[in-house]
């Protein structure tokens, strides 16, 4: 591991291997790490164990099928898995459609730029550290908001999480993407 390597860049290499080589060993590693977290997330959102198990398997199968859609310049693997799990939850527990924004996709020839991707993954880790360092009460509030048992709140304003850095990083990726699509 070089200094630049982070846990998150390692996960995104695993996803790349699933995408290009259909690598079951890499997938097994992703599964061992993320499936139990997705299951716990779904149970905290109100799913019973059987439904949570089924949905977690589904989420991991989606990761396999959609590995080519993962963009390391715009999200960490954990964030991407979270969005898949969230959508599965809306579908399974609320039985709602989820309106999704129009997607911005790179052209088929695009190779993610390593530096940009690494910087984004590093900032995601920093965000994780910042979240873990929040006072217990605030951290619980945020968790509850994401588990879905709080519908509205001013939480976002109160936490002081370093969202600006992530935002400017993503903004940069969007700018580059727009430029490339011209």
């Amino acid at each position: 591991m070089t200094e630049k390597d982070t846990v998150d860049t390692r996960w995104s290499e695993m996803v790349a291997r699933v995408k290009t080589e259909r690598d079951e060993t890499a997938f097994a590693e992703l599964f061992a790490h993320f499936a139990p977290r997705v299951k716990a997330f779904l149970m905290k959102s109100g799913a019973d164990p059987a439904l949570a198990e089924e949905c977690a398997q589904d989420v991991m199968a989606t990761l396999w099928h959609k590995a080519h859609l993962f963009d390391p310049e715009r999200a960490s693997v954990a964030t991407w898995v979270f969005t898949i799990a969230r959508n599965r939850r809306i579908d399974a527990l609320r039985k709602n459609r989820r309106p999704e924004p129009e997607d911005l996709t790179w052209g088929p020839e695009h190779e993610p730029e390593q530096d940009e991707a690494i910087a984004l993954q590093q900032e995601s880790e920093k965000l994780g550290t910042a979240l873990a360092a929040l006072p217990e009460k605030q951290r619980m509030l945020i968790q509850r908001a994401y588990f879905g048992d709080m519908s509205h709140s001013e939480i976002a304003e109160e936490t002081g999480l370093p969202l600006g850095t992530i935002k400017s990083r993503i903004r940069l990726a969007l700018d580059r993407l727009r430029h490339e699509m011209k």
């Binding site: 139990p36 997705v38 299951k39 716990a40 997330f41 979270f82 969005t83 965000l127 994401y146 969202l163």
Partner: peptide
């Protein structure tokens, strides 16, 4: 971009969640 940063918080929450046996 702001939405993506709030989704990143979701990723961090998922990463921090206790695990549940499969």
């Amino acid at each position: 971009a702001r939405l993506a940063s709030f989704e990143a918080v979701g990723g961090a929450v998922l990463e921090e969640t206790d695990t549940c046996e499969m």
